[in-house]
Design a protein around this nucleic acid. Structure first.
Lengths: 210, 210, 210, 210
DNA sequence: GATGAATGAGTCTTCATTCAT
DNA sequence: GATGAATGAAGACTCATTCAT
């Protein structure tokens, strides 16, 4: 009985440990995000991240192989979260969008909310010179967004060539990307007039090419 | 007599020196630009820049107070060059734009040409994040571009409030900034379809808000 | 009554524990030996040893005070094993050697066999330098081997001074130590011609000084 | 004239600089040797070496690419010095040795002197587990010594097979290697009785196989 | 003005060891 | 007794900057 008991204890202990480990990892990741946001990837030191997370440098390296691994993990988190948010708000990929304007509005809202929620996203991945591993880490995200836009545009412009659709897709993505960083710094991003203006700009462009 | 003579010599020598100094400075700046472009601001070491510029590290610090100062000086150079280019192509600031669309087209062309000519511009200042040391260097550039757009928009929309004009200005700037980096990587940027699409997008937006 | 019972239980349990403890310790020591052999003393990490031994780092420190203590314990093990092997093959210490040549041959065979059986022995203790932490661990081994040789030499050269005997002892030990590492890397060490040559060399030296 | 003068100054300055650089490098190397001797290669820290050499860590890395490079450079020094010493004392390779015993005596003296002069040699390179680059660095030395011994033995034993000569060569080398470390720690190595004993041992072995 | 050797604070990372559970 | 997460003191190495010449 005592052995059974100790096994139960062991299980509970290891469950607790695992839970705390996951929490710890998440805390470090959140701390890292804010440090990256403040001082950039190269400006951030692992010792500072550790200290701010209330953890020893050694502990940090129990959760992340390297400084870069922290950024990659962050990217993975973003990919997962954004995919989730996009599906929830705009509908699963494949669902026809009856109205292009609706699609634009909802997508922008999703992006705005996302950027507000994860300030590190802009700070780390919207750079011209991210080191290759970071770039790779967000590639899926790029692809997902592009695919979604491409699909909707193609459905609404059946007469256009692949190349044209691809071009429009890229334009929409980059136009939004240009405005997003400044929206993200607003007080209340979702209600910001800039958010409205971005929607207007995209709608105008889509009407023009339609 | 000899003192007069030596003074004349001194003047001539100091003029020569100054000229060579200015040339040196420009060379270092050009070298720094290409190094920044290759490896980014933090990836660049002052020793590498000095070496590639054929100058000793000590000399580099005779022209620039710090690594950051190099970037700031580069930004100032860009401001000057871009102002010149803009004036030449679009008309001096203050000159009324008869047609907004004309203004857009010419401005975009200027920017595209400029980005092609100065690769460091994109590498350093078109980043969505800007590591803190670069943030202040970028400000004058921002202001110059904004001022130009603001002026033209204000002239064409006399009934709008300051705040609205400011908002539209920011939008135009950011929309262009989003697309510019991908235009810059094209084979022949000026003829790229994306350049045309950017003009279309901006015209459509301006028409919408007009 | 119950207390008696529990005491009996306790005794049996503690006996079991102790037995398992000894086994554990031996397992860790064996693992450490192979890790040391693979990557050297400084290359080995206590965490790796623990992991390979299927033990937690904390447990390892229940058996060994420090990393150095592992090496010392290994040395002690070698002293014990080598003493045993030596006694079995050459006769217990104290037993007169009728023939010096016999003694040489048997001792070399013992050493060769031992080196083949315990690769860690060479890796840790046959190094010409010994990093300071290992220096003290090696001492007992040195002493044991020296004592054995000294005794036999003294018995066969009653007319020589202490100092001379000590010198000859050291010579024999070091001559053998020089050749042993290369013998140990041979396919079949015991049959290697080098083993024969080492015996010849030592016999020749002993004859010379005899 | 003043320009000529400044050129002369420049030349003198750069000559001075180079001279000081070479001296500095040699000092660091000497310091490193003694640190390696005291605490071993892995025990030595680059910061300690720098400090003891009266140099900043950064300066150390101006002369040596890495900690390992220091050891490799030391090895190269040893190779050069020992080659020089050997040629001077025993005669250039190729010169027939009339007497084997003479050859042994002189070679041992050279080695003893060398080991006394460069204590780092034993500490760094007589180890069972030197990292590969260190091993490579002394390989030439090994080869030189082997070649020299091989040549002399072959000349004196024309009837033996290649394999036998090779074996004897290896034996001589290793027998000497075993005793050398303890000779090197003696007060006055050249006069140490152990040096005499080593010569005796080698002569006895060579007589035996002759 | 120019040089480049010298600096040293600071970076990422490791690992022997401890300790709460 | 066992566990393994946590620790934190170093270590090798870099690089913006200075300064004697």
């Amino acid at each position: 009985m005592s052995s059974v008991h100790s096994t139960e204890n062991g299980q509970r202990r290891s469950a607790n440990r695992q839970a705390r480990g996951i929490r710890r990892r998440a805390e470090i990741l959140a701390t890292a995000e804010s440090v990256f946001t403040e001082v950039g990837f190269e400006g951030a030191t692992t010792n500072l991240i550790a200290q701010r997370a209330g953890v020893s440098p050694g502990s940090l390296y129990q959760f992340f192989r390297s400084k870069q691994d922290i950024a990659v993990s962050l990217a993975e988190l973003y990919v997962a979260e954004l995919t989730k948010a996009q599906s929830a708000a705009v509908g699963a990929p494949g669902a026809r969008e009856s109205d292009l304007n609706e699609f634009v509005d909802r997508s922008i809202d999703v992006m705005v909310r996302f950027n507000a929620a994860y300030p590190g996203f802009l700070a780390l991945f919207m750079r011209a010179d991210s080191p290759p591993p970071l770039r790779e880490a967000i590639a899926p995200l790029q692809h997902m967004l592009s695919a979604r836009i491409h699909e909707v545009l193609a459905a609404h412009m059946p007469d256009r060539s692949e190349a044209e659709i691809a071009r429009y897709t890229l334009m929409v993505l980059q136009l939004a990307r240009g405005v997003m960083p400044v929206i993200a710094t607003e007080e209340n991003p979702l209600e910001s007039p800039l958010t409205g203006e971005l929607k207007r700009a995209l709608r105008a462009y889509l009407a023009e090419i339609g």
